[in-house]
Amino acid sequence: MTTIPTPDLSHLSAQDYEHVYEPAEDTFLLLDALEADLDDLKAMNATLFLEVGSGSGCVSAFAAHILGSSTLYLSTDINARACNCTRRTGAQNKVTLDSIQTSFINGFHPRLKRSVDIICFNPPYVPTISVEASEAQGLRGIEGSWAGGSGGMQVTNVFLDMVHELLSPNGRFYLVAVKENNIPEIQERMKTLYQLDSKVVLSRRAGREYLSIVRFEFATST
């Protein structure tokens, strides 16, 4: 589907993928959504891009490739190996990704509030029992890339309460979700609590998963 080539990941090995989520249909759907919005994203002249849970770095490298060097690409992951892969994926694709090991955006200076132009989050969205998701985040390994707890929303919900503080007035936030996450409820909640409008911009079935990309922006932006 993607006409812009996906980032070169040939430097990553099976050993890396033992510890770091290997790009799959969910990743590629997010790339496709970014590509479909390419003209708008370019027109934003984004200064700051942020990917939370960057894993292999595939999405950040793709964004850096399509948007160019006038943007700072920050990426975070709780998994040290993921941060390392992200950094290497940047280098392999001749873009610079500033990778930070942290949970969500913890440790970012408060003045970054309302100044991130593009945010991407492909969360651990698979419904599991709640304790499994908490333990997975605690382990800081590959389990944390998919175990999503109750409704698959345990980790996502934490970030959904942070997004409005980070996003610039004209910013866009792209979220990967599956049907079990109850996307209409997420959309309703983000509108009510944070005046964030949203749209399901792309959906695709991949095996057992029905994947969607939800794009959020502030209601006031045109």
């Binding site: 610079t96 500033d98 990778s99 913890n106 970012f108 200076h109 003045r111």
Partner: peptide, 23 residues
């Protein structure tokens, strides 16, 4: 890598550490 552009946006976030916690 930590470039100084990144360093410039990182601050201490230990519980209760809210002033003089940067840079």
């Amino acid at each position: 890598m930590v470039r100084l552009i990144t360093h410039n946006i990182l601050a201490c976030h230990v519980k209760g550490c809210t002033s003089n916690n940067f840079p």
